[in-house]
Simulated scan of single mutants.
Amino acid sequence: MGKQIIFLFALLGLLSPLSSLAQQSRVEVNAKADTDKIRIGEQVKLRLSATVEQPTGLTVVFPQVPDSLSHWEVVTRSKIDTAGDNNKKIFSQTLTITSFDSGHWDIPAFRFDVVQNAGGATDSAFTGPLGIDVGTITVDTTKAFKPIKAVRTVGWNFWDYWLYFAIGITVIIIGIGLFVYFRSKPKKEVVKPVVPLIAPYEAALQQLQHLRGEKIWQQGDVKQYYTRLTDILRAYFEQQFNIPALEQTSEELLQHIKPVTILNQQRDKLRSLLTVADLAKFAKLHPSPDEHEAAIQQAIEIVEWTKPAAAKAPETVKEEIKQP
């Protein structure tokens, strides 16, 4: 007898949180379908709702409906909506379901859990089951079967294909426009290389005479004087003998003139000229006035010696023949 009393008090202790939860608030759950009869494959809107009075401190947990129920498939499910105020709140969710089995099928009851946030006590509420008839298409078997209709030919309609015609015409117009444009576009004339009006040796001699007349070294600009003097010679070598003289050092230039026999004969004179010029340009050497004049005279003699034989004066040719 004593054990029974102890068990009774323990049971009352377990039920006391649920009793207090029920006293504090009133929860009403409901499941409602928008129809009780469909044909196979049609859809049913199933609305689950929970109405809670005095909802402060309570959490309503909606049932976790699987994707497949007995004879039913869940197509879509909405989010849980909330409406109401602190005295009364309504929670709702809409499920879209369908069935592909004919017959009368029940949608099972759904369980809602109500959790008290403070104490963690939980209570449950259940909806009632719903019965829905799933029917097939009615076929009148008393009537004779009709033959299969032949394929019908649909008349041609321009407006069914107007987009394809528009695209085709646009492509043709663009093609014709491009053809006319490229056909009438003026051809670029090939620019012929400009042939110097005067021979390279003549240009070099004119520039050397002009440099002499400017009297640059007399004005104290020795570096500029030798820079222009050697540039005139290097440009002459490039044009006359195809030697990349402007891009080479003095030693490289002296090495590249060896194959040119007529130019190699002036190699010692050219070396002396380039040595003085390099010292004046890079070592800040100040040659004497006689050395300035000798340098430009050597440059003139090199050009005169190396110019084409047809351009040399008869006296120069005779002097070359007399030389051993």
Rank of each mutant, 00 (worst) to 15 (best):
L197R: 06
V195D: 04
Q219V: 13
P200E: 01
I198A: 12
F241M: 04
V194F: 12
P196Y: 11
K223E: 05
Q248T: 10
L205I: 06
V194L: 06
Q224R: 09
Y201E: 02
L246C: 09
R212Y: 10
E202S: 05
T230M: 01
L233I: 14
L211A: 05
L208E: 08
L229W: 00
E251A: 12
L229V: 02
Y201F: 14
L208Y: 10
E251P: 11
G213R: 10
Q240K: 08
Q240M: 07
T230L: 00
F237D: 00
T249H: 10
T227F: 06
R212V: 07
V194H: 03
V194K: 06
P193K: 12
L233F: 12
F237M: 04
L211N: 07
T230S: 04
G220W: 15
E238P: 05
E251F: 15
E247C: 12
P196D: 10
D221W: 15
E214G: 11
V195M: 11
W217G: 00
N242A: 14
Q206H: 10
Q219K: 15
W217M: 04
Q218V: 15
Q206E: 05
I216R: 02
E214D: 15
R212I: 04
R228H: 07
T230Q: 01
E252D: 10
Q239F: 05
Q206Y: 10
L208H: 11
A235I: 07
Q224H: 14
T227Y: 08
E247Q: 10
A245G: 03
Q239T: 06
Y225G: 02
E247K: 14
A245R: 00
L211R: 06
T227A: 06
L205W: 04
Q248E: 10
A204P: 03
A199H: 02
Q248G: 07
E251W: 12
I232H: 01
V222Q: 10
N242H: 14
Y226C: 01
Q248C: 11
L246I: 09
V195R: 08
V222F: 13
P244W: 08
T249G: 09
E251D: 11
I232A: 00
P193A: 14
T230H: 01
G213L: 07
S250Y: 08
E238N: 04
V195E: 07
T230A: 03
G220K: 15
